[in-house]
Every structure is written in structure tokens, then in C-alpha cells.
Design a protein around this nucleic acid. Structure first.
Length: 828
RNA sequence: GGGCACGUGGCGAAAUUGGCAGACGCGCUGGAUUUAGGUUCCAGUGGGGCGACCCGUGAAGGUUCGAGUCCUUUCGUGCCCACCA
């Protein structure tokens, strides 16, 4: 039969058409609706760096497929988008190219918004936010004041990480590995007065909360646990010889080794250093050593330099034996962890052993290896638990027993207590840069630090500031902004000339989406009660200890303030994999392997881009870009286009036609098996790649059947299949399905249709293939009715020559029978 | 040095619980249509063998009627952490 000629598939025309219509209809805007189960879906908000590439497209398409699917399943889906718009690159652009950060940022946002629309993502754009707008950062400042009111924001002088390239301090999390997270410059140490948030007070709550998040990747939870670094041990107090009252506190997890402590090691910043060296011949040496280390970062001290130290000139007294213990000033003890002092137990700590050997300090063994363990080779410390010796009355105890008993003895004497330490430090929040939310405080000569009253928020960023890149905050050079009156006394005062870490802006943005235009509050508590927490949060693993930790901390505080329900913001977390360049390397401008969204949408269409990216691999795994692969997706869509349009009216409501659920069982089985498979895999399992494969398989089968028979009945089956195909494909390829739906008699938008449900009776098979194995190797498959007995299947199997050939002259010793699946004959 | 992932055709990959390894797509080969190419369509495509069959999921062992899947050892790749006392 001659096929009617149809228009060729023209993705650019279709995509532009529907993007315009969806926008006119406000199709993707969503309101609170108590009658439908809510689903809050969110991707981590992007930094507007300029251009989106296919890696971004993957991330956002992933969310869009899930969102569209859930909407068709009846959920009230909130899926918003916004911009993490403060930050250094905008300011660097200003320094390098003379463009105002605001202008640069706005330009990038406009471009990226256009690209996301072009991708067809169903965001509710009426809720779009920009963290650099005064309407937004007003509330960031308000939350800063809330933290201050709750005693969680404070200013103190501390050794901090300083990036000499970006001229700003960095949080610990942003200086991992001793390099700046943004520019990679080596971080220096400086003693500065800075603002902090008291995240360490929440360390245990942050740890405990992880246990309530089964749908977070274990990898991320492990990284957070490691970063929090909870460590149980004891603080032990050593008296300083000859200085009554002065004591040195050390933290140890190995109290059982205390009789082996032959020296104390302290950081050069430790306050006891002055006391110990004062009046001794070592004084000058100690000061020179401290001076040398002063500006060195932890990376420099602990990894780039060998262990070294100098004798402080003084001694401490062992809290149990009262022995004289020399105190050494070293580079390997961190000033910022524990108390900045440790007891050196060279026999049972590898680091202490290295140090003791270098400086000929005593090594005293106090732990014997347990019976089933050997002494370590010479040169290595025995660091495991064992049995105590050379430990006075505690000899013979196991390490575990000794920790308890010695702990009790020290506590009784007032020389020690059980302590928990954390690697996590308080969050350094202030930045000496322009393009951020100003810290809403005023310095008054009389009243000190005074918070800006809430009704005077926002503290606006001044429009102009010198963007020179030289040290110091640019805001300090804007007198008209800097000089104000004190809110308390009305006298002359100066603003805090610093801005907040941008991670502060992104710690709460997902709540602003809920009430984006509210001018009375950061968000309505009722809206939060309806929408929060985020049901599915999608983003990269690089934020494991930055954004994801800060936001959890923030949310716990907000919960205590009664502003949000629950105490975890992200119920399910999903880390998508990277799209690598065609050469299998990470996409980057410098490698020249970046593939942009616009280029792909121009040549293949946004739908093909989406389908290919969902198809190319499992969503949590990396895969390399393939331009040949996207061409395949275009081909598949064109086949669907032709097949659907060759069957006019196939998307009509089947209830309105004279549908007959009978017909060709083969076709109906194929259709309904795929509906079931795709529904299952798109839901909790998130196997989006196999969903696309299943759609392709369904297409293959429908195509094959459409070619063979042409009668009313078979055509009805094909129509049923094509209608399902369009609906199943709709989340992946929203434009082509909308067009096909419209052209084929569908009513309304395809994206608000009910997700197809499968007909269980179509899945009932009259005969099933049962695999027959001999000694575990497949020899045949026999077809029989579901529920057939073992005997029946054996009888059928014995008719297969490929089976009997293997049984020739042997006896069947054992039969394994899995009903409806498998028969294994074991012969000897 | 420690931790966590992951190793399957020429390539991207699939394989809920241990039960037909390689679905689906790319690429490739041959053919049809067109013919200038492309598009489209058909057939084939893990290796070996004429064949019945044999081999095959980084490597080596083990458990099991049966292992890509579980266990042990080992090699390789990637990511994270790393003198935290």
C-alpha cells in the first residue's frame, strides 16, 4: 500500500514552536495543591559562567525526564531553576576586561537561560532566582543576622587560609590539599580577624543525620563522615615544670600508651612555647623556628617539609609517673586540631618514632603485641592494640581496658577527661571581595560590632568600586558606602567592608524557590511545609563536603528556628556522571574538546541531544561524547516520526474509538511488557538508559508488525502501541512527542496526559521458554505452559536431540528445576 | 600510605534475586532502492571450527547443580582523603 507522503522530521521548527507555546500557556508553572502528592525536584543551581555544554545538558535533562514522568503519574512537581550569581569569576572579569560584574553576570544568565529553554526543560521560570539580586541577598543578610542572634556567627582572630592569587581568605573546605579550590594557587597561612559560622557545634547532628538518608550515595556519606572526622579520645593535662599553674593539654586516642610518652610535641603557635623557652638558652632557636613556620600552610608544614623540631628548653611532668618529659616545638603538630599539642609515644606511633630517632629521644615499649601477632620489623612502631607492660599498676591489661582504667585514674586526679575531637572546623564566612552579599554589620567606635537592623536590609552593594585585584576589600575604597551612622548610638561608624562566602547564598536558595516574590519573608513557612524537603536533588559529587554539608547545617538551624519541617533538606541525592570529551578526557576549554548545547541543537535538535544523553550510559556513570551517537538518536526519532504519521489518528483516546483489547497477542505483549519495564525502571531505579533502549525495541517491533499486516484489527493494535510509544517517549523528547500527539488526534498537551498503564492480561503468555541445561550448560529451550510440572518439562527436554546427545550413556544424578525458568540435569 | 568505586565485543553499553552473556545503539560488511553522494530499507556482525560443538565478562584460585554477579588473592583504571595524634 502506498504510504502517504509526510513532512520530513524538522526538529528546529518543531522545537521552537512548542517552546513558544509552552511559554504562552505557562504550562510549567506550578502551585501548591493539597490534592496531589507533592514532589520537589531540583538540580544544584549553576554558577552563570557563560555557556552550557552537553555535560550540563545531561544534568538538567536527567531532572527533566524524572519531573515530566512524575507529573504524568499524577505528582504535583516543583522543578525550579536559578543562578548562583555571586562569586569571583565575575569580579575577575571586571579586573581583566573592565566589565562590571553585574553586567557580566546578567549577560551570562541571559545566555544560559536561553540555552536551558532551548533544551526544553520544563522549569517553572516564574520562580527563577538570582542570588546577586537585592531581593534575594536581602534575605541572605537576614539569615546571617539570624545566625548571629542564635550565637552561631562570630568574629575572631584565627590562623586562616589565604589565597595570595585571589586575595581572600578561604574556608577549610575550599583549601583542600593546600591549594585554592578556584585558582589552584598554594594557600598561605595568615592570622586575621574573620567571621565564622559555628558548624562544629552541629558535628554530631550532621553525622547522625547521615544515618537517616538511605537514598544518598554511600560515597558522599563516607566523604562527609571523613570530613567531619569524629575522633573519641582523652584530653590529658601535663604540668609545666617550674611554672606553677601552666599546663599543657594534649589530645590522644591512645591513652593506653601514656607510660610510653617520652616527650611532648607542640605547634609553634602553642601559648606554652613562650613560657617554656623563656630564660633558657633555647629561646633564640625556638623563636627563629617559630618565625620560619609562621606563614607556612599546613600543607607546607606537614607534607612538603620533613618532620623537624627544636627543644623548647622546658619540661613537662608526666601526670602519672611525674617523670620529666622534654617539650619539643615541631612542624608536624597542627595548631588547629585538638589543643595543638600531643604526647610523643615513639614505640607506638610511627610519626613519633621518626621524630624520636631523628633527635635521639627515648623509645619505651609499653604495649606488647597480642599472642597472635608478631613484633613489627625494626624501624616500625607497633601501632595496634595489645597488652600493657612497663605501665605500673596497669600492666597486663588490654589496651581497651587500660583506656578506661587510666582514664578514670586521670579524671580522679583532675588531670584528664574523655574528649571528642573533630576534623571539621568552623566555617569561615567572610571574604575580602566585592561581588558578594555585604555582611550586615557596622563597626562603631563606641558600641563595637552592631548588626544592621532588619528593617534596613538589604545593605546594598555600591554600584562602583575599584576593581584592581590588589589586596584588601574593594568596598573599603568606597567612602560614600563605608561611612554610616551607628544604628545604636547614631554616631559615625563604618560598615563591615566584607562580603559573604557564596556558599552562604547557596545554602538556602531552594527555600526561596517556594516563595520567590515574597517581600515580607525569605519564604512562607506554610509553603515550606507543603514543599520541603527536596525529594530528589541532582548534582555533581564535587560538592560532597562543600555545598552539601553547609546546606545541611543551615537547614538544621532553620529547623530549630521553626522555619522548615524536618531537619534534612535533601531526601534523595543523585550524583550524575560526567560527559567526557570524545577523547575520553574531561571537557575543558583548554583541551578544546567542549561540545556545546547550541551546536548540537542546531545540527541534530534538542530532542535528539536529550535522547542520546539519556541513552548513552547509566546516569551515574561517566561516558565520552559521541557525535556519531547523537546522529543515531536523530535517526531513531525520524523513524518514530514516519511511523506515527503513517497512522493518522493513532493518538486518539482509545476509549473514544471502538477499541478492542483483543487482537494480535504478540504485539500486545510487546507493548505492555515495555510499558511495565519502562515504568519500573524510570521510577526508583533511575535506569534511564535502558528505558530509551526499551522504547527503541518497541519501535522495532511496531515497525515490523506495521509492515506485515494491514487489516483493521492489526491496525488497532499498532495504534495502541504508537499511542503508548509517544507517551513513553514524552519525558525524553518533549517536542517531537507534543507535535506527533497534536497531529495524530491527541487531546491537550501530551505532557499532562496520564502515564500509560499496562494491561496485565496482555502479559499472560500461553507458553514460556524454559532453558534446559546439562551440567549447567545451556543445551536447549523448550516451550510449555506456565506452571508446568518438572515431569512435563523433563519429558519435553528428552525430546530435544541436543539434550539427549549430552545424556548419552550417563545417568542423571540430580535435577534442578526452577518453575517457568530453568531445568538443569546433572549427569555423572 | 588509607578509603571508595569500577574492569564485559571494534566503541557506548545491557544482564532486579546467582539461572539463555553481549539487549539497545554506534561502527563495520554485504545487498536493495536511488544512483552523483546522502537518505531509506533488508541481511550479517564476540573468537574459533565445514560441522555437531568448543572457547569467552582483566588474571589466578574458591563456593555452587549453575558465577559477569558471591568469597580470597592479584593486576589495572578512576575518584576521594591523607602527619587529625
Amino acid at each position: 500500500m502506498p504510504q502517504p507522503t509526510v513532512d520530513p522530521y524538522d526538529p528546529q521548527a518543531i522545537e521552537a514552536k512548542w517552546q513558544r507555546i509552552w511559554e504562552e500557556r505557562k504550562q510549567n508553572e506550578v502551585r501548591e495543591n493539597p490534592d496531589r502528592p507533592k514532589y520537589y525536584l531540583c538540580e544544584m543551581l549553576p554558577y552563570p559562567s557563560g555557556d552550557l555544554h552537553v555535560g550540563h545538558a545531561r544534568n538538567y535533562t536527567l531532572g527533566d525526564v524524572i519531573g515530566r514522568f512524575l507529573r504524568m503519574r499524577g505528582n504535583n512537581v516543583l522543578h525550579p531553576m536559578g543562578w548562583d550569581a555571586f562569586g569571583l569569576p565575575a569580579e575577575n572579569a571586571a579586573i581583566q576586561r573592565g566589565i562590571h560584574p553585574r553586567e557580566w553576570t546578567a549577560h551570562n544568565i541571559a545566555n544560559m537561560r536561553r540555552q536551558l529553554r532551548r533544551l526544553g526543560v520544563a522549569y517553572d521560570w516564574s520562580r527563577e532566582i538570582d542570588t546577586s539580586s537585592p531581593e534575594y541577598y536581602r534575605w541572605t543578610q537576614w539569615l546571617f543576622l539570624m545566625m548571629y542572634r542564635r550565637g552561631l556567627a562570630y568574629k575572631k582572630e584565627a590562623p586562616v587560609n589565604w589565597c595570595p592569587n585571589d586575595n581572600t581568605v578561604l574556608a577549610n573546605e575550599q583549601a583542600e590539599g593546600g591549594v585554592c579550590w578556584r585558582c589552584g594557587a598554594k594557600v598561605e597561612r595568615r592570622l586575621l580577624k574573620q567571621w565564622f559560622f559555628g558548624i562544629t557545634a552541629y558535628a554530631d547532628r550532621l553525622l547522625a543525620g547521615l544515618e537517616t538518608l538511605p537514598e544518598w550515595p554511600d560515597r558522599i556519606k563516607t566523604m562527609q563522615r571523613n570530613w567531619i572526622g569524629r575522633s573519641e579520645g582523652h584530653t590529658v593535662s601535663f604540668a609545666v615544670e617550674g611554672a606553677s599553674g601552666d599546663r599543657i593539654q594534649v589530645f590522644t586516642t591512645r591513652l593506653d600508651t601514656i607510660f610510653g610518652a617520652t616527650f611532648l610535641a607542640v605547634a609553634p603557635e602553642h601559648p606554652a612555647v613562650q613560657v617554656l623557652s623563656g630564660g633558657t638558652p633555647q629561646r633564640a632557636t625556638v623563636q627563629a623556628f617559630a618565625e620560619e613556620l609562621k606563614d607556612k600552610s599546613e600543607l607546607d608544614r606537614t607534607q612538603l617539609m620533613a618532620k623537624q623540631g627544636v627543644f623548647s628548653g622546658g619540661y613537662a611532668l608526666h601526670p602519672i609517673t611525674n617523670a620529666r618529659v622534654p617539650v619539643w616545638v615541631t612542624n608536624y603538630v597542627l595548631a588547629t586540631y585538638g589543643s595543638g599539642a600531643v604526647m610523643g609515644v615513639p614505640a607506638h606511633d610511627q610519626r613519633d618514632l621518626e621524630f624520636a630517632r631523628k633527635y635521639a629521644l627515648d623509645v619505651v615499649q609499653v604495649i606488647a603485641p597480642p599472642a597472635d601477632q608478631n613484633q613489627p620489623p625494626s624501624g616500625e612502631a607497633f601501632v595496634d592494640d595489645g597488652v600493657l607492660l612497663n605501665s605500673g599498676e596497669f600492666d597486663g591489661l588490654t589496651s581497651a581496658q587500660a583506656r578506661v582504667r587510666i582514664g578514670a585514674a586521670l579524671a580522679a586526679a583532675g588531670n584528664g577527661e574523655a574528649t571528642v575531637n573533630y576534623k571539621l572546623r568552623d566555617w569561615l564566612i567572610s571574604r575580602q571581595r566585592y561581588w558578594g552579599a555585604p555582611i550586615p554589620f557596622v563597626n562603631c567606635p563606641d558600641d563595637g560590632l552592631v548588626p544592621v537592623p532588619e528593617d534596613q536590609l538589604p545593605v546594598l552593594l555600591p554600584d562602583e568600586a575599584p576593581f584592581t585585584g590588589v589586596s584588601g576589600s574593594p568596598l573599603e575604597s568606597v567612602p560614600s558606602w563605608l561611612n554610616v551612622t551607628c544604628p545604636k548610638c547614631g554616631g559615625p561608624a563604618k560598615r563591615e567592608a566584607e562580603t559573604m562566602d557564596t556558599f552562604m547564598c547557596s545554602s538556602w536558595y531552594f527555600l526561596r524557590y517556594l516563595s520567590p516574590h515574597d517581600s515580607k519573608a525569605a519564604w512562607e513557612v506554610d509553603d515550606a511545609k507543603y514543599w520541603a524537603p527536596i525529594d530528589r536533588y541532582i548534582g555533581g559529587a564535587e560538592h560532597a563536603v562543600l555545598h552539601l554539608m553547609y546546606a545541611r547545617f543551615f537547614y538544621k538551624v532553620l529547623n530549630e528556628a521553626g522555619l522548615v519541617p524536618g531537619d534534612e533538606p535533601f531526601l534523595r541525592l543523585f550524583n550524575q556522571g560526567l560527559v567526557l570529551g570524545e577523547n575520553n578526557e574531561r571537557m575543558s576549554k583548554s583541551r578544546g574538546n567542549v561540545v556545546g548545547i547550541d551546536a548540537m541543537a542546531d545540527t541534530h535538535g534538542a530532542d535528539a541531544l536529550r535522547v542520546f544523553e539519556m541513552f548513552a550510559g547509566p546516569p551515574d556513570a561517566d561516558f565520552p561524547w559521541s557525535t556519531a551517537g547523537i546522529a543515531g538518536a536523530t535517526r531513531t526519532l525520524a523513524r518514530i516520526w514516519r511511523l506515527v504519521l503513517a497512522h493518522p489518528g493513532c493518538c486518539k483516546d482509545p476509549a473514544a474509538s471502538d477499541a478492542d483489547s483483543g487482537g494480535d497477542r504478540e504485539v500486545r505483549y510487546a507493548i505492555h511488557a515495555k510499558i511495565k519495564q519502562i515504568t519500573d525502571e524510570l521510577g526508583d531505579r533511575m535506569h534511564l538508559n535502558t528505558c530509551v533502549a526499551a522504547i527503541m525495541t518497541l519501535l522495532n517491533e511496531l515497525e515490523a508488525h506495521a509492515g506485515v499486516r494491514e487489516n483493521d484489527r492489526s491496525r488497532q493494535n499498532i495504534h495502541e502501541g504508537l499511542r503508548a510509544l509517544v507517551l513513553l517517549l514524552a519525558p525524553f523528547a518533549p517536542h517531537i512527542t507534543e507535535e506527533l500527539w497534536e497531529r495524530s488526534g491527541g487531546t491537550g498537551s501530551v505532557h499532562v496526559q496520564a502515564w500509560p498503564s499496562y494491561d496485565a492480561t496482555a502479559l499472560v503468555r500461553s507458553s514460556l521458554p524454559i532453558v534446559v541445561q546439562v551440567n549447567g550448560k545451556r543445551r536447549a529451550a523448550v516451550f510449555c505452559a506456565p506452571g508446568s510440572s518438572e515431569e512435563d518439562v523433563v519429558a519435553l527436554a528428552m525430546r530435544e536431540s541436543t539434550v539427549t546427545a549430552q545424556l548419552d550413556g550417563k545417568t542423571v544424578r540430580k535435577r534442578i528445576f526452577v518453575p517457568d525458568k530453568l531445568l538443569n540435569l546433572v549427569v555423572g
